[in-house]
Design a protein around this nucleic acid. Sequence first.
DNA 1: CGATTGTTTCAGTCTTGACAGAAACAAGTG
DNA 2: CACTTGTTTCTGTCAAGACTGAAACAATCG
Lengths: 170, 170
Amino acid sequence: MVSDEADSGSDSPPLLSGDSEALSQFIENMGLYFEDYGIPRIGGRILGLLLVARRPVSPEEMSEVLQVSRSSISTNLRSLLMAGLVERVSLPGERSDYYVISEEAWERSLEMRLEGIQALREIAEEGLQGLDAGHPARQRLEEMLSWTAMVEDAYRKLLEAWQSRKEVPA
Amino acid sequence: MVSDEADSGSDSPPLLSGDSEALSQFIENMGLYFEDYGIPRIGGRILGLLLVARRPVSPEEMSEVLQVSRSSISTNLRSLLMAGLVERVSLPGERSDYYVISEEAWERSLEMRLEGIQALREIAEEGLQGLDAGHPARQRLEEMLSWTAMVEDAYRKLLEAWQSRKEVPA
DNA sequence: CGATTGTTTCAGTCTTGACAGAAACAAGTG
DNA sequence: CACTTGTTTCTGTCAAGACTGAAACAATCG
């Protein structure tokens, strides 16, 4: 679903290069993957494109390469910006804005998972307060609570590990 | 959104007890939470109900307590069964089937996360094959790959830790 | 072997939200 | 200060799928 009829009247360096069939497939797969997780397919495809592009990409180019309307690009881009997954860069002497994958995209992704599990832990805590001492369901909610706590802890550690992955190279 | 007008002509032990306002809230929160993650809201509410119920619950009771049609219960129950989050139990002398949260529900939940991240790693691997050696995007995809590998590893460890949480109590 | 009770499947309705196209808006340039 | 270019907002359309009620199906009991 990726057509590279860009470059129309442009002398900018090529956007994509390499096995374009594989890259199209990659972009499409990203779209499908994210769709499974509640992110609009086009948003996922934008991320895919930004991941394999040789240089920052303008909304106009996204629209051409992904074959979707500019308004869709605009809407999805805004969501991705707000989620901290994409960043705007100003290319010197260019009037249009250009976008790249955020440096912290993967970190943000972990943070979002962390937030999700925290929310679930809070639900468990509140639910537990509605059960009397000897209630047969208490055990289940306590198990849920310890599960969320355990996963939350793992995410925290993962986040730290990821953040400090560059230090101590050897 | 939970009305406990069950018990209609029944002498079975009560389904819910405790702070019913809090429990309703819990069930509703579970529905909303799961909805955010692509699971039908009713499915989430069923899980919530099963978590705080005093005993196994029949589809009929779910329909009454959650105020949704039996066919919705049936459909969602089937999904939950297939996902391994819910189990059927046969109550002796009862004609209707009863359901409980699966013992392995939380474990299954981790397994599903693991499968998700594996899929993403495969996407990254395939995409990487479409990029030539010196391609500026290689670094990004390699970072994506190492991120997925790291998260995948963490999930595996988490899964093991959860599975063996009962052994070695002291 | 009807009749009752419980469960699943089916077809239709309704809601949600993604997307497109057009209009509105900004900003920069001659 | 028009005019061009680029971006966002708005409105309408469309598709996906969650949910319901009714019909079909099983199984059990008198």
